[in-house]
């Protein structure tokens, strides 16, 4: 298991903090002195999963490196909502260069720090799914292959949200986006082969790859902390629901992330040097409908005649994940 569940306490394992937990068992987010790497006043939409995920990850990284952190950021929502002139929400040294070059910029920063002998300063690169799985993929793969000393964090909200919800290679099948409208014989996004960047990252045999969601803070912080404890190329893929792009209620952000995991649609695991070392088991398995129904991007599946075949195909994706990663308790890894 990524971390030891706190037995015999009603919420220790799942809530952000808890007055009864030993301080070391609480999350960074529970700390009154947490960094707030991403400060208030940012212009993210109500209930933004990416804003949440970024603060979770950056604050955890800050703790792990004693606040000696530099970040490179891809173009996208996170960049736009955090740094419109004349205000920035970042509390850390941060640079935005371009959409597709974040991994390379981070490589450059890491190289500069190395040459200057500042080994204590650590580098994080971050971007959305578009900046990671599509346009920034070349630079990402290069950074992986060279094993540059960079932790790359992808905040995956499954489409190009900043430009108005267009499809990315992380958009799930059947999802409505502005470029995959729910019309025609195969409404919504096509059932392609998908581009599973965590798996591709693993194929680079880099020291560390992990997936996480904003619904499980302990696990997320554990993974960021673990990644920060290593050197070389590391990749964390964080699932961050987008209320606007998904057509979900702003208060359902964490619930959706939870359901993505509990359905099996998003596998939460970690891998070292290309080998899966642990998976987060599903706690209460639910059918994919429970997840899909909360999102208007899938509403066309639940019309007068529900698209049972499409839903079954999505369920099959979840089932395949469950088999592949051994996500159910009894199946084991």
């Amino acid at each position: 298991m990524p971390f030891q569940p706190v037995k015999f306490y009603q919420t220790g394992t799942f809530t952000v903090g808890n007055r009864l937990l030993a301080p070391e068992e609480r999350t960074v987010q529970a700390n009154m002195q947490r960094t707030n790497g991403l400060n208030s006043g940012h212009r993210a939409c109500q209930g933004c999963g990416e804003a949440l995920g970024a603060r979770y990850a950056i604050d955890a990284a800050m703790r792990a490196c004693n606040n000696q952190l530099v970040a490179a950021n891809a173009t996208g929502c996170l960049e736009v909502f955090s740094t419109p002139y004349p205000e920035t929400s970042w509390q850390i040294p941060w640079i935005h260069s371009l959409f597709g070059n974040t991994a390379a910029v981070a490589t450059g920063i890491a190289a500069a720090l190395k040459v200057k002998g500042r080994r204590e300063v650590r580098v994080v690169a971050q971007g959305g799914d578009g900046g990671t799985t599509d346009i920034g993929f070349g630079c990402l793969s290069g950074m992986f292959e060279r094993n540059d000393d960079v932790l790359y964090i992808c905040y995956d909200n499954e489409a190009y949200m900043n430009t108005g919800v267009q499809r990315s290679s992380a958009t799930p099948p059947a999802a409505r986006t502005a470029t995959t409208m729910p019309v025609g014989v195969e409404p919504g996004n096509v059932f392609g082969q998908g581009k599973n960047v965590p798996q591709i990252a693993m194929a680079h045999n880099i020291p560390y790859v992990a997936t996480a969601t904003v619904a499980d803070l302990h696990d997320l912080e554990y993974k960021v902390t673990k990644a920060m404890g290593m050197h070389g190329a590391r990749y964390i893929h964080i699932f961050v629901p987008c209320p606007l792009g998904w057509g979900a209620a702003s208060n359902d952000t964490i619930k959706l992330a939870r359901l993505a995991r509990e359905t099996g649609l998003f596998a939460v695991y970690e891998a070292e040097h290309g080998e899966v070392t642990s998976v987060s088991k599903i706690r209460k398995r639910v059918p994919v409908e429970e997840y899909l129904k909360l999102q208007k991007r899938f509403v066309h599946l639940f019309g007068k005649t529900p698209a049972t075949e499409t839903i079954a195909r999505i369920q099959a994706m979840a089932d395949r994940n469950i088999r592949k990663f051994g996500l159910l308790e009894e199946e084991g890894v």
Binding site: T15, V16, G17, N18, T27, A30, S40, C48, G49
Partner: peptide, 17 residues
């Protein structure tokens, strides 16, 4: 019961502990 959840889950850091 001071589980810190609201403090943690706010995307806008708008909860003061």
């Amino acid at each position: 019961f001071e589980c810190d959840n609201c403090y943690g889950v706010c995307p806008d850091n708008a909860v003061i502990k």
